[in-house]
């Protein structure tokens, strides 16, 4: 069983490298070779390189956030997007972004970006705690999903209200961000994005034991010597940081967080959470790298929004699981 797991990891790693290479050869310009060396260099290092890194970071962070949420709620249908956490992050980014632009707060790049990242993480935290408080009153997995949908709608409506009063210039940038995109990040962005994302991902490794205990629920976890509320608080913090930072840089990206942990459980057929943490990072990266490549490939003239592809993969998977009603 161990050997076959290793071969699965090797296949995933190969797919990851292929995806990364594919992503590095796309974007910026379709006719790479005919341009002069300086332009080629610029396209590669300033457009494709940050885009590929962003795809890897976004895929890993959202998948791990989804894994944490699924184990915490003991609900295979949980995820940052379906529970409205991404929307909460978006709403707070909208407030900061639009307020910042109106009051010219963002003349300093680092200050502006930090404000956006912090408000995004804050938005994720608020929605996660809200969902948690509501989930104590219900035990039905599907109702939790519906509550997430409603919260997401409320955040969307508030955001629409804000956009209505925004000035046209900041609105356009914001709407494009809100559609979700991997190509919007610069190398400078990646410099802020990657340390936060990597710290969040490494932190999860130290919570393998509580995550494993959470599989049996709150009572059994406590009886296994796990301080449930303390560990849950830290895990909510980590998943909010992971969702928030990615939403701040890429906009809300749909269905990766819910679909990847499910795929991981289907592929590895184990309840070992160490395996799942590593495989979620790999599968999540692969999903976004290939989705990105597909976006570039499908349209010659414009880049399609990444959410189109991830929704086409993720939504049918969720519907399939609802019909199957077997818990993954």
């Amino acid at each position: 069983m161990f050997k076959s797991n290793i071969s699965k990891f090797i296949i995933l790693l190969t797919l990851f490298l292929v995806g990364a290479l594919l992503s590095l050869t796309m974007g910026g310009s379709q006719s790479f070779n005919v341009l002069d060396a300086d332009t080629n260099n610029f396209i590669f290092w300033q457009i494709r390189f940050p885009k590929t890194i962003t795809a890897i970071l976004a895929g890993s962070t959202l998948s791990i956030a989804g894994l944490i949420l699924q184990l915490m709620f003991r609900n295979p249908l949980a995820g940052p997007y379906v529970l409205g956490i991404s929307s909460g992050a978006s709403l707070f980014v909208a407030i900061t972004f639009l307020a910042g632009n109106s009051f010219h707060l963002f003349s300093n790049y680092f200050f502006g970006k930090s404000m956006v990242v912090i408000s995004s993480i804050f938005g994720s935290l608020i929605i996660t705690f809200l969902i948690l408080a509501l989930s104590k009153k219900i035990s039905n997995n599907v109702i939790l999903l519906l509550i997430g949908l409603m919260l997401s709608q409320i955040c969307g409506a508030l955001q629409g209200f804000l956009e209505y009063f925004a000035n046209p210039n900041s609105l356009k940038a914001f709407v494009i961000w809100g559609m979700g995109s991997l190509g919007g990040t610069t190398n400078l962005d990646v410099l802020i994005y990657s340390p936060i994302a990597i710290i969040g991902l490494v932190a999860v490794l130290f919570f393998i034991k509580p995550l494993t205990a959470f599989l049996l629920g709150e009572n059994y976890a406590t009886n296994s010597g796990i301080n449930y509320s303390k560990n849950r608080f830290y895990l909510i913090l980590i998943s909010s940081i992971l969702t928030g930072v990615t939403t701040a840089f890429c906009g809300p990206i749909a269905f990766v967080g819910i679909a990847v942990p499910i795929l991981s459980r289907i592929i590895f057929k184990t309840s070992n959470q160490k395996t799942h943490v590593i495989s979620c990072i790999l599968i999540g990266s692969c999903v976004l790298l290939f989705s990105d490549a597909l976006c570039h490939h499908l349209s010659k003239t414009a880049i399609l929004p990444i959410n189109m592809i991830t929704t086409f993969v993720g939504a049918p998977l969720v519907i399939y699981l609802l019909f199957k009603s077997k818990q993954w």
Partner: peptide, 28 residues
């Protein structure tokens, strides 16, 4: 307890192995 646990690929062995959680290292 009276609660029923299932899902997430949990096997009988995995559930019994949870008994050793108080004794395992940080990475379980």
């Amino acid at each position: 307890l009276t609660e029923k646990i299932s899902g997430f690929n949990l096997t009988c062995f995995d559930a019994v192995a949870m008994g050793q959680l108080p004794y395992t290292s940080l990475f379980n």
